[in-house]
Amino acid sequence: MLKESWKNILLGALLLTGLTMLLGSDSSDKKADSLLAMPKAEAAAMPAYEQEYMKIVAGVCDYLTTGNTAGLPAQGMTGFFEELKAYNDPWVVSSRPGYTLQDINNDKVPELILTRSADPKGKGYYGRDIYAIYTFVDGKIKFVDENCLRSRLRLLSDNTLSKSTCIDDKNMEWVLEMKDLLRDGSLRQGQTFYSKIENGRFNVYRKYLDVNDTFVTQKTSMHFYDMMNIDHNVQKIEFLPLAEYSSRGFKGLVMQHLNCMGLHELQDNRVDLSAYEHVYADNPSHGAEVLFSSNTSLASFEVLDLQGNSSRVIYSKGLLNPEEKLVLHLESFETDPVLSDETVIKNGISLRDDTGSLRKFAIRAKVMDGSVYLEEID
């Protein structure tokens, strides 16, 4: 008992030391205070939701650098703490956490998402797994959902939350729930899948709302692994590393502002394109027309030809405003001979984010359904 207690104390000290080093802190109170400092004028100019979200992020940073738990949110830290305890290497844990703002319930106010894993792309960072989500309703932060070691929380491409939970690991019993975040901050239950062992075989069941808004359960022909792969069609969420919070705040997020889709993806083919400016590549191909816009101003915006060893500018604008929309007539999307599920990169865009950094994105299409998406590149 005593040995186990000392072991936990030693592990906690090791983790805190590694995390403190990563975030650039030392033992002095002055250094810790500087991590959380932000000019008052800048903070006051922030929207109310950012000011409140900032308290959560600052509290997590303070905990990682000083061990102080006073600023941590009351909910949402379960998976975060479990992961800290699970790893013996503090550098593995400290390189993972991040945060982002992204509107997933379409109320024009973004949610705060604490993310788990880092995947650097160009000058950005992207992750799939989520620690916790918070929303902002009636001037207050509201906790939405979180993960733990026995669950996995992700965001699907349509902004539906997907949460898979292990009920019985030995018998491979899992539940996969789909939920939508409503504007009042509550979660609406969507379809649910769950696996059970019956008569020595795995069966997968689906629970869903029928036309009468009544939940119906049906046995499916799905394999267990098919069920577990449902949430593989997830968003790669752009986030900022916690280690950069003191220097960046919420600046440097780009993806949440960009809107890019293929013309063929429109549900209504009668959409009036007269308000769009048309931009043409050298060899435009029918079927490779892309609609592009942004909900924020984009500085030094360019459309690029990415073939060859250099990026050739097809179109440029010093400032692309939110009300401006473009139809990009690009070259055909061809399947990559090596990566059969992706297309060859031919065109892209570049811009400067609100930190002044130059960011480049390739315009790609998924082979399976032809949907168009942006992927940050170097």
Rank of each mutant, 00 (worst) to 15 (best):
I113T: 04
D354E: 04
L84V: 14
E376F: 03
W174V: 12
S151P: 12
S246D: 01
W91V: 14
T220E: 01
Y276H: 14
L291H: 06
E52M: 12
F333H: 04
S34Y: 07
Q51N: 11
K85M: 07
L23F: 08
A41G: 10
Q218V: 15
G76Y: 00
N283A: 11
L374F: 01
L326S: 05
S300W: 08
G24R: 15
L156N: 03
R201T: 15
L181P: 06
I237L: 07
Y87G: 14
K251L: 03
Y134S: 08
E82T: 10
P241H: 06
L374V: 08
E244F: 05
G76N: 03
M227I: 15
K140T: 13
C148G: 09
G356L: 06
E265C: 11
G185P: 06
L320N: 04
L156C: 00
M261V: 13
L10Y: 00
S195E: 02
E265H: 08
M261G: 02
I237V: 07
L253I: 10
K121V: 06
K30Q: 06
D26R: 13
V144K: 00
V372E: 00
L112E: 02
W174Q: 09
P337I: 11
T69L: 12
D184N: 10
L19S: 13
C260G: 04
L320T: 05
R188E: 04
I363N: 06
V254G: 02
E82F: 07
G308L: 10
L266K: 08
L11E: 09
I130R: 04
